[in-house]
Design a binder for these strands. Structure first.
Lengths: 163, 163
DNA sequence: GTCTCTTCGCATGCTCCTTGCGCCACCGGT
DNA sequence: ACCGGTGGCGCAAGGAGCATGCGAAGAGAC
């Protein structure tokens, strides 16, 4: 794993191609960015070794799987002691419904993004898990009505060279 | 593409394995869930054809790429006319920094999740792009201080059979 | 000009994917 | 109890893809 990465245009295009389609063949990726399959393989291995590619994942369809609700939950801690923060951290780590959890600026301390089958499960999550937890003081949940855009792609075009 | 999907335990385990590692070999996946590579391949193709797997993506590392800021932006529209909503939809669709955009319950109309290199770019996004846009009335952004959890895996264990 | 370092494409041995095939376990009807 | 149908399974083989050794070509230092 090299310490300082310097990416050229080909690397960026390869990263873009792979975050678009993670199962691209070196051959296909090579055609797309203008490189031979072998060189494509080498560059991809280098990008993985450099830690720029953190993994490959299948993106599943939530709706047909019966996970119909996407919810953002703002959480305020009871106290801001180190212990409390640690307990809360462990809690969200354990909860499978919580896809993402961030410490934020603004009103609430934390923002959670959770996926649940329906309102009943949301109620259970909030009332039976989050609120009773010793570390939590207040909870405010907002339900997603419509998904306008949902991509996990990083804006690579915004990068100045040598990022 | 079959209309009604009925998943058994093997399908669910395969989905779980693939959202964990999207580049799993049919052989590797088979070992993990207890199935032969050929059957694994068949089930995977079926899941893809059924639309339960929406794609495979490389997960890139934002930080070393110079994308140091993750931001949530709450947006309130000027008017709630259909035209305005459509204009806003086109705007967020165009913006590469905006990874996700949702219409929400709660105070604000929309919640955006955006990735930018630094505060300068955030200011540019808010002040030069969002706020001047005709459809937008108010904008409130919250910066992510720390990422406690960041996985895009759906909670498959929460599913009742036959989802 | 020459030397060196890097990056490239080609060739190749090895792994992996997919699909045809036959087998078996289960099920409903008689 | 029997039996034909159905669906899911593993095996095998042909074709595709991956990674790496190798030589060639270009950039930069002096």
């Amino acid at each position: 794993m090299q310490e300082f990465v310097n990416l050229d245009a080909l690397d960026l295009r390869l990263l873009a191609a792979l975050q678009e389609d993670g199962r691209l063949t070196n051959q296909q990726a090579g055609e797309r960015i203008g490189l031979s399959p072998s060189q494509c393989s080498r560059r991809r291995l280098a990008l993985e070794a450099a830690g720029l590619i953190r993994g490959y994942h299948a993106e599943l369809a939530a709706e047909p799987l019966g996970l119909k609700l996407l919810v953002f939950v703002q959480v305020t801690l009871a106290t801001h002691s180190r212990d409390n923060a640690q307990r809360f951290r462990e809690l969200v780590g354990r909860l499978e419904e919580v896809q993402e959890a961030y410490a934020m600026t603004g009103d609430a301390d934390y923002l959670l993004k959770a996926v649940v089958p329906d309102l009943k499960d949301l109620a259970a999550l909030v009332n039976d898990v989050l609120l009773p937890h010793e570390s939590v003081a207040r909870v405010r949940s907002s339900i997603v009505l419509e998904r306008l855009k949902e991509s996990h792609r990083l804006p690579l075009k915004a990068l100045r060279r040598g990022g």
